[in-house]
Simulated assay, not measured.
Amino acid sequence: MPEIYDNDPGRTFGNYDLLNDITTQYDIDRTQAHELIHAMLNGLVQDDPNVILDRQPVHPGRLVSNPNDLDIRHWLIVSDDTEQTIRDAIAAVMAHQD
């Protein structure tokens, strides 16, 4: 199942397949691609919160021991259909940029 790194504005985020595909396809930077992905995902979540199937911690060990109180970031698990819907929505937005 596709994974999307959670969104915490101003914080770093890890690589994920959809992000890499969007940056390559549209020649945009990682931050812009990540923001676009989350804008589309947020719209879908407003219509149906269940599009996020699961949340998995990026660093599960921090749930057990986190003495430095580091942020707990998550992978958002979505269906293949949701990922494709996000791709299609970004394609529509980017088509109007030209």
Rank of each mutant, 00 (worst) to 15 (best):
M1E: 01
M1W: 03
P2M: 06
P2N: 10
P2I: 14
I4Q: 00
Y5T: 04
Y5C: 07
Y5V: 12
Y5M: 00
D6M: 00
N7D: 01
D8P: 14
D8A: 10
P9N: 02
P9R: 00
G10N: 12
G10T: 13
R11C: 03
T12I: 15
T12E: 15
F13W: 09
F13I: 05
N15H: 07
Y16W: 13
D17E: 12
D17M: 12
D17P: 13
L19N: 13
N20L: 07
I22K: 10
T23I: 07
T23M: 08
T24K: 06
Y26G: 02
Y26P: 04
D27I: 11
R30G: 00
R30F: 05
T31C: 08
T31W: 04
T31S: 02
Q32Y: 09
A33P: 00
H34G: 00
H34N: 03
H34Y: 05
H34T: 01
L36A: 01
L36F: 02
I37Y: 00
A39M: 13
M40I: 05
N42P: 01
N42A: 01
G43F: 09
L44I: 07
L44G: 01
Q46T: 09
Q46S: 12
D48M: 07
P49S: 10
N50G: 01
V51F: 14
V51I: 14
I52R: 05
I52F: 07
I52S: 02
L53K: 08
L53G: 06
R55P: 05
R55N: 12
R55W: 09
V58G: 10
H59A: 13
H59D: 14
P60N: 04
P60A: 03
G61F: 06
L63K: 04
V64R: 13
V64P: 09
P67F: 14
N68H: 15
D69R: 03
D69K: 08
R73E: 13
R73S: 11
W75S: 12
L76D: 01
I77C: 04
I77W: 05
S79D: 12
D80I: 08
D81W: 09
D81L: 12
D81K: 15
T82W: 06
E83L: 06
E83Y: 05
Q84H: 14
T85W: 06
I86V: 11
R87Q: 07
R87G: 04
D88S: 13
D88L: 09
A89M: 03
A89E: 01
A92T: 03
A92D: 04
V93P: 09
V93L: 15
V93D: 11
M94L: 08
M94W: 10
M94S: 06
A95S: 04
Q97Y: 05
